[in-house]
Design a protein around this nucleic acid. Sequence first.
DNA 1: CTGAATCCGCTCCGATACTG
DNA 2: CAGTATCGGAGCGGATTCAG
Lengths: 132, 132
Amino acid sequence: MSNQVESPAEAPDVMRANTVAREMFDRIADRWALLVINALGAGTLRFSRLHEVVEGVSHKMLTQTLRGLERDGIVRRRVHPTSPPRVDYALTGPGAELLRAVTAICGWTRDHITHIETAREEFDARRSAEVR
Amino acid sequence: MSNQVESPAEAPDVMRANTVAREMFDRIADRWALLVINALGAGTLRFSRLHEVVEGVSHKMLTQTLRGLERDGIVRRRVHPTSPPRVDYALTGPGAELLRAVTAICGWTRDHITHIETAREEFDARRSAEVR
DNA sequence: CTGAATCCGCTCCGATACTG
DNA sequence: CAGTATCGGAGCGGATTCAG
């Protein structure tokens, strides 16, 4: 039976603070991390290619994000012993599962651009009407 | 109608910087925004209840996040003319669609805690072994 | 080409106080 | 109870430089 324990360390839920689940969630729930995962959904990509595909990401943040994702086993890094160095990145098995959810978010965003723009206009209009 | 293009050089979506899609994505791809959406998946919640459910969020960030989500038509805010004030929040139709993707991410996180912890240990061990 | 480290501006975020 | 405003510190994140 599952006894109601008050120790929050035992609840593997993202809603609880100071848990491993939340810590992982914080890494994933990041714009650059999500965009990198989304980009790798198209297949293996080199560092320089990723830098192009994920527009707006700086050299530093891309490296940092990739390290984090690699450390958590979401992305696999492969170094080719050539000169100049050639490194490519790909999603791991679990990473590919996560990709589906990420793709869904990106798709939702694309499909609701109009809805959101409309909602914003209404919201802003209502605001300026109230403030007066 | 997902058109698999061979060269992702031209990505007319969230991958492009300075677009409406990216702007929206940046708001959604935020830990507090995602956690709030996830929390509202259980149904309508009052402000104070949200504050409890989404552990770790500050009063200010919760308000700020809710305003953003409301403005983008993801969350609906309802004020009850009582005393003391009573305000509750719920997902809109589009918000409920987005919820599915968010739930998927939260679920993935729960299901892969062990995998990630293992990956981290291996990564860290490999690191300290290389550095020597 | 890839990556690590440094500097530093700037934004985020928490704490606090005040309003309705 | 819910929301807004302000302030100050902490950390994000960009530009740059150097190494392999």
